[in-house]
Design a protein around this nucleic acid. Structure first.
Lengths: 342, 342
DNA sequence: TTGTAAGCGTTATCAC
DNA sequence: GTGATAACGCTTACAA
């Protein structure tokens, strides 16, 4: 504000070269060679003058904004990703910076009109999109798909042609339930993290079922309840499970937050964890280790997820052809006290 | 991608007017009159063609990016704001959209070199900045101040000329401690949310002190401990308080997260809340009502904070002179079970 | 190896 | 009321 803006022309003049050269040097253009002396000269002058190219001008000329957009949907899912939002943003911003990119964030209503994302792409505000928490029935997302705009999903949308990064929910759930089985439980309930229309939810339930059946146990629908992202849902669904006779001896709750709600229902009933009922959560939110008893949970590599998604997107933007279209990242179980001596 | 890009020229041609007219209509320029017929015509054609102005071109020509930047510092403070980040982002994005703006997010290392923010402003990537969690000793922030770039602080920086929005930490703390006093407590400890170099921390401690002294009680430094944003710090500091003889009968913990840590220290010692020691937290994070016992806490209007900050910034950008420079928003106490029958 | 010149798609300043 | 025309600051063929 105070000082007059420094343009590339000024840098050129001070360095005694043309604007082309300045641009070539500062953008490290792979082709064209510049003498080491000129290069150094330009860089030094630019530094001295505090020259920073104007983003809009650059974008207009090069057809690249050097900005990527993170799109979140304003949905119940939201609540669940809260715990990781900071990690994800952190990782996204850092990875972006490493690649000379910036991050723009947008939150859209679920089930909005078909054009929500297209406004972003048509305005050419961004070079690519990272979309968090896709749902089957999102029409706007399909519009985006047709548009062919560089997009990476954090999560999955089976049947869609999008690139995506996700955790292997099914394998993770199997891991968690196998842990309970190993401890001798045979009557294991499941509370999902969300309605079954969410892929993550369906996959975790499937993992639960496979784990159960893989040891010859019977899958019993009465032992399955559907959570809805929040504590309340866990509380309510666990209460219903406790009406069963006999009550389950263990439960796999596919979300820590939902599990916290379940825990308060168990406590309210005067039952003990893991004495009367063992519990395994999912997500390993920071709080999991501080609750009483500390919750055994599947740890979710949020930062890795974001980093991988980001790098995938950059490849896509640079017209690369990433080899893997749908990546699944591994998880591990963090054993604490909610299942008894493990 | 599929279809050729539609430019304002095409809209003009289809509507049988000039590009100027298109621009005038679409931007609703206050001066210049356009016949109602022409106006309708242009708007309709633009809609039909799916015309969206290219952001970069607009920015270059108008010197306005229609983007604001949210800057977070990658610091311990971070942990505390986690719980509200979603609410804040949500509110910020919504308010921005209402004003035709977008949100860019940046996370910078604490104590980075003097130019971190200037890169954003010099590149003219954004029209204004919302800065969350300022610290006294941030040199880069002072550089930003000198630069005179439109900036609004969420938080406070006494002595600085920045516009700011914050909660009234002192009043809020007084409220919380007054509640404990009203319940008959006279030996009330305090664990701060953070090191005292944070204004919020200092203000809350001051509120505690004023509440204590306003009823003729003695301020006792031995009853004051310093938390550090996280659960661990609450655990450690409460442990130290429990070594006192006699132990305090109540504690004001200036952060829910820190309070959760304190609770586990109390539990570990075999003491009961509120039986042996009453507790009031601060922030009213979502989890506060689900912990056992549900924590009485000062509720923090995160979304309002963000909305007000955003609107203030927009006024600033439009060269307005907001009447209030430093706004303080009110809070209220949410009474639950951690202080006994209230 | 470096310079010239033509865009990039708007907005804004004037005349008409 | 409306329409040329010049910025806006940079990138990038193409020449030199």
């Amino acid at each position: 504000m105070a000082s007059k803006r420094i343009t590339s022309l000024e840098v050129a003049q001070h360095a005694g070269v043309s604007r082309t050269t300045v641009s070539l040097v500062l953008n490290d253009v792979p082709g064209a060679q510049i003498s080491e002396r000129t290069r150094k000269r330009v860089i030094q002058v630019a530094e001295e003058l505090g020259y920073v190219p104007v983003a809009a001008a650059r974008a207009l000329a090069s057809q690249r904004t050097h900005v990527i957009g993170l799109i979140l949907t304003r949905s119940p899912h939201h609540i669940a990703s809260d715990a990781f939002l900071t990690q994800i943003l952190d990782s996204l911003v850092e990875t972006s910076h490493q690649n000379g990119m910036r991050l723009m964030i947008d939150i859209v209503e679920e089930m909005h009109h078909r054009d929500v994302y297209l406004d972003l792409t048509r305005a050419r505000s961004i070079d690519g999109i990272i979309f968090s928490g896709p749902k089957f029935d999102d029409q706007a997302l399909h519009a985006l798909e047709e548009d062919g705009f560089p997009t990476v999903l954090m999560g999955q949308l089976p049947g869609a042609s999008f690139y995506s990064v996700d955790i292997d929910n099914r394998a993770a759930a199997k891991l968690a339930v196998a842990h309970l089985i190993m401890l001798g439980h045979t009557r294991i309930a499941c509370i999902t993290n969300a309605p079954i229309s969410y892929t993550a939810s369906a996959d975790r339930l499937q993992g639960y079922r496979e784990a159960i059946e893989s040891v010859g146990l019977q899958f019993d629908p009465r032992l399955v309840r559907y959570g809805n992202f929040d504590l309340e849902s866990g509380y309510i669904q666990m209460k219903r499970l406790l009406e069963l006779n006999p009550i389950p001896s263990a439960a796999f709750v596919a979300s820590d937050v939902v599990a916290f709600g379940a825990m308060s229902a168990i406590r309210e009933r005067g039952l003990s964890i893991p004495g009367d009922i063992a519990l395994v959560g999912f997500d390993d939110v920071p709080f999991a280790r501080y609750i009483d008893p500390p919750l055994t949970s599947v740890s979710l590599p949020a930062a890795d997820l974001a980093r991988v998604a980001c790098n995938l997107l950059f490849e896509l933007i640079q017209e690369g052809q990433p080899p893997e279209r749908n990546l699944l990242l591994g998880t591990h179980l963090v054993v604490r006290k909610s299942c008894g001596a493990g």
